[in-house]
Design a binder for these strands. Structure first.
Lengths: 342, 342
DNA sequence: CCCTACGATTGAAAGGTTTCATTAGCTGAG
DNA sequence: CTCAGCTAATGAAACCTTTCAATCGTAGGG
């Protein structure tokens, strides 16, 4: 509803002004080489004069195809996901497509809402980092004809294309690093547990812990309600509340935001990092290195993650004999001061 | 496009299966109270059986109205903007609309691309933090009938609704704070200068500097190519390269990412903060408080910024006698360790 | 038993674009 | 001078939904 009453010019108006048929205007738009230079110029002039902007709804309705990709992020506030998105955008731009994003904020209902929105919009394909990769909602989308690739998660069966990083290995790396540094009682901080990323990272840590022959009880799990900075601070609260002899000397946080929160709490409460508490984060976001105590973290190839995800989606949406591919990247531990030798 | 050949079910298919007319199906969708319970149930069953999903393009084409708002962010990697976006989303959801976002990455061409995309999609309205608020591209959008509100910037004439924070005042607060702390030679770090935010913050700093009767030359300007962490580190490089007597004792960075980069460089090069170099950032992002040395910063009400922007847009797109409103919020300095007394 | 009124349903038109089978207009070969 | 062979342009159909005036059926009042 434009407040002014000026109706948007349509191809029909352009055609009338340029004294050509509708078809010709459409050709100027879509196959300019088929129309003679003189008429093309006349049509373009008319478009400019009327301020014509192609109605994408009509175009899509008729052509049946859309020129945009969509990404449903799990947490827009986490720089990890925005970096992933940048990779996607790069790939989309390369292919002449646009990328729009939205943010589920770890809320399944909101995620579902955006998924149906994009389905209604008949976008060319959907990228999603789901709250729950097993959700049948994802199958519903794909069954309805919208290509979908799962980002930063995987389906056990190969029912979708997916791009992920080996979170079990990542958890293992983190725990092994702490064990190497001599820690014999550590905490895992993260949640909620229905987030696959959290479960896998914890599992990896447990495997490493068991492999080292350490008692399971000495890997304390501190569950948080989500993965923000505030939750990390809350975990710090709980940690310092423990009796000194029961207090872990190292913590592995399920992501860097939580780790930064924990670090912040430690510092403001006089807990020295890494002497009293070593901390390992996850994601190696840009801010990890700039933290109060530079954070040891598990790095994931986030840009490449996005790039690859978009490439898979493109293939799925255009290649007739596409087969689902489950790409798994390998994480890498970046050691910094927050776990320096004790 | 769907790889399997299953055509998407349309209202026609639903109508056929439920043995009713097209109009009735549409009524079930849009004015369920007008159709009797029995037929409604029959239609809904048919929809479920066919997996019907409304084609938004067709709906929009006919109904002429879209149910989505769009936000073109200046820098998706900057948590400031994602916080703003969250505020917008809250307001949109409240109004039963969806918010999609995209990222211009401070690139005017990309911004223009997204603006026309959304115009082609005939979204209900566009929110944008433009690279250049004076750009005629913005007028073009609005003249073509798409309501548009400018976020985190303003037009001098009241030609648009806008929501912004007083950047000149913010710059002033930052500089005054450094002056209060006894600094008599400071650096301003930021860029590019065609970014209004940067210009205004610098101008505010200069005003404060002049008001304090300090020589203009002692406010050194270090221009960066953008406002990322890496650029901050680069500025640190240049700063430490200066002869000691010419080296500023304080720095005001145009945003927190740059400030964090500068801080990081300082620390790794043995420059003590705040003793040798005091640092003030801007935005007060969540990571500022968790930095190596907690960062003094200028806080902006980012959530409210988004909320208000969306509210203005909603008014502009629905209220017939809408008048442009230019809301200006007041920033606030949050002092932390990075400028502690010397 | 007729008529009115009302609720439920229908059917056709409209919205802007693309596509494609045709037609129109030329050029140049025969 | 004709006609094949092109290129350029045309016009109608199709995409799917919403809207709205018109119709149908029925219940209730007279």
């Amino acid at each position: 509803m434009s407040v002014d009453g000026v109706r948007n010019a349509s191809v029909k108006d352009v055609a009338a002004l340029a004294r050509v048929s509708l078809g010709t205007v459409s050709n100027v738009l879509n196959r300019p080489e088929r129309v003679s230079t003189s008429t093309r110029e006349r049509v373009e002039a008319a478009m400019a004069e009327l301020g014509f902007v192609r109605n994408e709804s009509a175009r899509q309705l008729r052509a049946g195809t859309s020129r945009t990709l969509a990404y449903v992020m799990l947490d827009g506030g986490n720089p990890f996901f925005t970096d992933v998105a940048r990779g996607m955008e790069e790939a989309a731009e390369e292919a002449g497509l646009s990328l729009v994003m939205c943010n589920s904020n770890q809320d399944g209902a909101r995620e579902a809402g955006y998924l149906t929105l994009f389905q209604q919009q008949r976008v060319q394909g959907v990228l999603v980092t789901p709250v729950d990769a097993a959700s049948p909602a994802l199958d519903a989308i794909r069954d309805r004809g919208t290509p979908l690739v799962i980002v930063d998660r995987t389906r056990d069966d190969a029912s979708f294309c997916s791009v992920a990083v080996d979170d079990v290995l990542g958890g293992r790396l983190a725990a092994e690093h702490l064990i190497d540094r001599g820690h014999r009682r550590i905490a895992f901080v993260g949640g909620p547990m229905d987030l696959g990323q959290v479960r896998d990272r914890l599992e990896g840590a447990r495997l490493a812990w068991a492999d080292a022959g350490l008692p399971a009880d000495d890997l304390v799990v501190l569950t948080t309600s989500s993965l923000g900075v505030a939750e990390g601070r809350g975990a710090g609260e709980r940690l310092t509340g423990l009796a000194a002899r029961r207090r872990p000397t190292g913590a592995f946080c399920a992501n860097d935001m939580t780790a930064l929160g924990l670090l912040q709490h430690a510092i403001t409460h006089g807990v020295h990092v890494p002497e009293h508490l070593a901390i390992v984060g996850y994601d190696d976001i840009e801010f990890a290195a700039a933290a109060a105590v530079p954070l040891t973290s598990v790095r994931q190839p986030r840009h490449e993650l996005g790039l690859t995800a978009a490439a898979l989606l493109l293939d799925e949406s255009t290649n007739l004999d596409h087969t689902h591919d489950q790409v798994l990247f390998t994480p890498e531990l970046v050691a910094r001061a927050s776990t320096a030798g004790r």
